[in-house]
Write a protein that binds this DNA or RNA. Sequence first.
DNA 1: ATGGTTGCCGAGCAA
Length: 275
Amino acid sequence: MRLATWNVNSVRARADRVVAFLERSQVDVLAVQETKCRDDQFPYLAFEAAGYEVAHVGFSQWNGVAVISRVGIDDVATAFVGQPGFAKGAADADATGEDAPDPVHEARALGATCGGVRVWSLYVPNGRGLDDPHYAYKLAWLEALRAQAAGWLTADPAAQVALVGDWNVAPLDTDVWDMEPFTGATHVSAPERAAFAAFADAGYREVSREHLPAEHTYTYWDYKQLAFPKNKGMRIDFAWASPALADRVTTVRIDRDERKGKGASDHVPVILDLA
DNA sequence: ATGGTTGCCGAGCAA
């Protein structure tokens, strides 16, 4: 089975390109992030015509995640248990002693069982800035996911679980082109890196680096300032696998060519082959 | 060159 993950940065702007990728690369299951649409706006027909089923969750023009599969889609979950929402205005309410508004649940996680693998398409909050409320949200979100994922393994040590997507964390200094511009920035801070590494403590293995250990191997390049031609990229898309699944991974590929040409997403697919 | 890119939607936000 071939499993891939890709932040497509709008599935409507790129439906043809995503279908072409699925067919050219013979992908069985694709986890998609940043569809940027509601469920009723998703271009289902383009994927169904190519022989794929789609499970999607999207509430607005922001976020949105999907699993696209030609080996079945069962037990779809449009959030993980305990998934935090963004508590807009929580800090203000705390200061004034007023009741905080209800947190806004965002479409950032979708789980589906495809071909015997529990696949989670994950779009980790960006964080925006170290002083921003979205940064605390990001850390809480990662910790809540880790707690759930640890529980899945405790319940079934032989579980085949893939936690794949845009983690918005560059775990190593060599996962960015240069650390200097990231001074005081998100994606590289110690708490974010610890929250990411905690998935290893929970028993998972990040199989993309196991198979592609080369430094400065990127999955994302900003649209601005000729970042791609200058290869000023970041490695922020990863695949944590449960032990039983990690043992099945034979190859991992990053399809750098998908960043080329007109109409490219700013991220490229990460593709896993499973024995 | 006081910007730089893209996508949402149709101004300004988010990444």
